[in-house]
Amino acid sequence: MKMIYQSWWKVLGVILVTYTMIAGLLFPVPPLPIIHETIRNLYFHVPMWFAMCVLFSISVFYSIKYLGNPKEEYDFIAVECVNTGLMFYILGLVTGMIWANYTWGEPWSNDPKQNSAAIAFLVYCAYLVLRNSVDEEQKRAKISAIYNIFAFPVMIVLIFILPRMTDSLHPGNGGNPAFGKYDLDNTMRTVFYPACLGWILIGSWIATLRFRIRMLESKKLNDD
């Protein structure tokens, strides 16, 4: 927990993302039909989902912790990680739609990947709605922690497993050429991995800021 006050990993995140913004546009990419230069979206669209996944994982971790030891802090971390994760969720969906508009022909083609991502988004929106519908604080924290623990595996299955079992246009699904073995070459890896780590750090940073604000708010509320 002391880590959230340290700044080395925040600086690291900024450096990594800045690097990927430069290298991601200037380094060579493999020539592929249809997608052309849009393959560079891999450096920007996919890390959004990585950041979201890590934030939701942290959230579940603290939800489980809350059930074992009902500390207000744990509940706050869980909810702020979901809040920040949802921002990355929306960014991931929107950037995916922009890309799909130029490669699949329309922003929303009811592709399995898109549809399940939309459903999982609603599952997480329901988490926030559920929280706001319970007035009593401890009850709210407990119920939403349990809901969160169930929502996480549902989200993973919807986004990462079900689309892979059917025919999806999305790269890496249903026998589609992924940004994998054949076209994610080593040059792309030198940008893609730092991009993921960088955005995960930036996302966590924003979540800690929101968590600290929430702690201050709660302290103020208790003082009054």
Binding site: K10, V14, T18, I202, W205, I206, L209, R212, I213
Partner: peptide
């Protein structure tokens, strides 16, 4: 991006 990052650091200082 660097502008946004500096902004985040400023928020952190205020908190």
């Amino acid at each position: 991006f660097i502008g946004i990052a500096l902004f985040l650091f400023a928020i952190e200082r205020r908190i």
